[in-house]
Design a protein around this nucleic acid. Structure first.
Lengths: 360, 360
DNA sequence: CCAGCGTTAGAGAACGTTTGCCCACGCCAC
DNA sequence: GTGGCGTGGGCAAACGTTCTCTAACGCTGG
């Protein structure tokens, strides 16, 4: 309680307890507490309380070469996909005394390199990377140096990193199965960027699912988006649907699906009357659109907590095994995909309200 | 280039350049470069480049007692209001060599205290607080200790902190004026929590605007939400509209406005046919709802950059004056508010697509 | 009774910077 | 020729921890 102007240091505690700073350090650190007698330990921690001692993490970091800081690289915090993941990471990290530094790369390799280097200069203890793409030089560099890395949301075929992601193939299979159950057979796919594992896996899932249901997939039934953006969604929607013939679309993610809504309007197509669509990610507020978007949901927050857990494991037990973790997705059925027979009944058949959780 | 296993230290650079570490330090720091001869400075920085020297920020922090880290406290990162602000903060901070630590308080005072204390323990150089409420003990503590603080989005009457926020009164005035221009006279307000400056200022703006237009405001024409949530929006919408008589609502923010959409359905009211509504914040995707929500927009990103600028000013020039900065809002007209005469024409008259920026 | 061992704690050197102090040197003015 | 001054740069002490040695001490066992 007795507070001077300058915060109490370990030396202060030591003199107050009548011991050497080293002893005070030992007494205060859980790992070394058993090196001092119980009596001394108690006297030290009493003194520490009394002085309101807070260890200086900077000095500790300098000595231990551990910053208890980890770097998180994401494409863009504004993408509603990421905030829940970040919260998951931060909450789990906090339990272990770590904090996160967030870096946005804006899908720009130069910027990613810059942020990565800056974080390394700040001596982060490890990285959670949500930006993995095939052939990324950052991944190569991270693999070469032996800084602990965990991949989140995306995986890498090229490097042996632990990762936490969604079973994307399974998710798309569920979406296709749902559409088939509704009577659709002519189903298109808007594939996300193929250099990210999400885009590639979902495309694989699409082909696999169509094969399972013995449905042919012709050229033109799959179009490739160059980015997960509304604009690309609209463009791909046009390209996919302008020829006619398709009755349903599985979009690479919600952004592309919502972009499609624009294309529907342009082409004079009614959703879900003329065309059904299913997204991926189950973004917040997606249940409030007209029509509310059916989407493949996955536990964003848990993706973050699991990634943090894996990373801490790796940091604290240097030679823990590499783990590849997949979380199961779940199809959330809303109003954007309806039975084929219903075509023509028109939009608006599905009520706006409470079509899902009341998140956010 | 010549890289050993351990990263180059200042001493390495010094010996490589044939000078004392202190000289190397002076040569490398912009502020002290003029203390050494040009020739020496060049020799040192050459050596630094050659060795790939990166100053150790931890050691520097220990010596200078500056962490070049700032703490940002927000209620919840999942609230789409905050990501753009955070990006603004981070981008501006990065220009000055600072990084941000994000802390979520979940509107829980105990948690806020915890996060605040942890950040202080980590010796952050300053805070951006987006969580200010009247009577907050954190504000008191921050004011007492002399850690630099800038308030963002909300202001405080009680303490002399610099702040960056929106001219909330002006925003609500614009909303009311718009409704009045559309012929509405019986306008209700769903007020946000009154312990936050946003809620209070918007309520003031509402009363002021109604007075300007010589419109009476009776009891029951204003209801108070206890939180900016969809649930509270729905509840307040019900309470406000069940008695009947009102033709338009100005909501304390978008979340409350969207919550209202639910109440409209329950009460069998058609929006915008029977009831017009205007929100505040212009959240992402709000333009994709049915009907697309008219809302008061403000520059979220700039709120962040300005807050960061103010904070850095305060950190680096200790006695810079306190600045209270207001950014101007702007009414974005979409489909949720229509002329009174149009009542009965029904919803859906407003096209879904491109009702605003194509943001994400 | 003493060698040897385990336990507890002190001494002091790190960790990699920055910075106050001082000295040496060269130059100018007297 | 000497005193003084300005400039460039070395020295060493911080900053607050942790950690490796080492020493003191009390026991036990032969």
């Amino acid at each position: 309680m007795a507070h001077t102007d300058r915060p109490a240091t370990l030396r202060d505690v030591a003199t107050a307890a009548g011991v050497h700073p080293a002893t005070a350090s030992r007494a205060l650190n859980p790992g070394t507490r058993l090196l001092v007698s119980e009596e001394t330990a108690r006297r030290v921690s009493d003194a520490a309380d009394r002085l309101g001692y807070r260890p200086n993490p900077v000095a500790r970091s300098l000595r231990t070469r551990r910053s208890h800081t980890i770097g998180v690289l994401i494409p863009d915090l504004n993408n509603p996909l990421f905030p829940p993941m970040i919260r998951g990471i931060e909450d789990r990290l906090a339990e272990h005394g770590y904090v996160a530094l967030i870096g946005n790369t804006d899908v720009d390799l130069a910027k990613e390199r810059l942020v990565f280097d800056q974080m390394r200069a700040r001596h982060v203890d490890g990285f959670v990377l949500a930006t993995a793409i095939a052939g990324s030089p950052i991944l190569a560099e991270a693999a070469e140096s032996d800084v602990p890395v965990v991949l989140m949301n995306r995986t890498s075929q090229e490097y042996p990193f632990s990762s936490v992601s969604v079973d994307n193939e399974q998710g798309v299979r569920a979406a296709v199965a749902h559409l088939v159950a509704l009577g659709h057979t002519r189903i298109g796919h808007i594939a996300g960027p193929q250099d990210a594992s999400t885009g590639a896996a979902r495309l694989r899932g699409f082909h696999a699912a169509m094969a399972t249901h013995k449905l042919p997939v012709t050229d033109g039934q799959v179009v490739y988006a160059s980015a997960y953006s509304l604009e690309e969604g609209a463009r791909c929607g046009r390209d996919l649907l302008a020829p006619g013939g398709l009755t349903a679309v599985v979009a690479g993610n919600d952004m592309l699906a919502v972009g499609c809504y624009g294309a529907f309007d342009e082409l004079g197509l009614n959703c879900p009357g003329d065309i059904s669509v299913i997204g991926f990610n189950d973004m917040p507020f997606i249940d409030r659109l007209r029509p509310p978007l059916s989407s493949v949901r996955f536990p964003h927050y848990q993706l973050g907590t699991e990634a943090a857990t894996l990373l801490i494991e790796r940091i604290e037990a240097a030679e823990s095994p590499v783990k590849i973790l997949f979380l199961a997705p779940e199809l959330v059925v809303r109003g954007s995909a309806v039975p084929l027979a219903d075509a023509g009944e028109g939009a608006g058949a599905v009520p706006l309200r409470r079509a899902g959780r009341g998140r956010t």
